[in-house]
Amino acid sequence: MTLTKRIIPCLDVKNGRVVKGLNFESIKDAGDPVELAEKYSNEGADELVFLDITASNEQRKTIKNLVRNVASVIDIPFTVGGGVKSLEDARNILLNGADKVGINTGAIKNPKVITELMELFGRQCVVVAIDAKRNYNVDEKKNIFTKDNKQFWFEVFIYGGKEGTGIDVIDWVKDAEKLGAGEILLTSIDKDGTKDGYDILLTRTVVDSVSIPVIASGGCGKPDDMIDIFKESNVDAALAASIFHYETHGVNGVKSYLKDNKIPVRL
């Protein structure tokens, strides 16, 4: 046996509550983050990710108490991201009980914070989160892909997917790895919310560009989407939110299904 694929429920947190978009409707309250964390942990989640979804825009700090309360009830690893700009922000998260800190916009704005974090806390704590979107304005300096006769490249977006940076995702992941990232959390903006499956091309390309672990995110609507991404790429972990909110797909149920389909998971 060897290392298993990780299944990671993601909890989007706003004002101290978990929120979700239900059937493409507006954001609804999905419960208490601490209770959900405990539930997912007991159901066999391999890790948890908390994202303060409004933090980058509103320049808010991730809530210290939330981190503490979650850390008090679960005994699996968890990552906290959202609005992390400085070493001090990251420290606040890690010293209050999170195992890893996710940094997205803050890493683009100030890449050396990745190195500072790595030197102080170790590489394994530093998750560089990247929101990627296909850009069809082809520029020959970018890594160009062709699908359905259309050419495009993957652009890094920041501020919760609202602002393009002109930076190529493939270049950025390589830089992030060199700077000290221990893991990449890769979200496809194109796929996010579609429940249409992960972006396989994006994921595979990023996984093959770095030698650190990569978490696929965005687009998971059913357990088969996880099977696809694990079979079609060498990705290490699959993150999902909405599928775990329905009782029909508890974490344990999803993992059993993956195991039946020859994906190595912890059960």
Binding site: M1, T4, R6, D46, G182, I212, A237, R266
Partner: peptide
């Protein structure tokens, strides 16, 4: 070993 992803991150037996 450089033939494997580093860090070794996740659940193992």
């Amino acid at each position: 070993s450089s033939s494997m992803k580093i860090p070794h991150m996740g659940w193992n037996n």
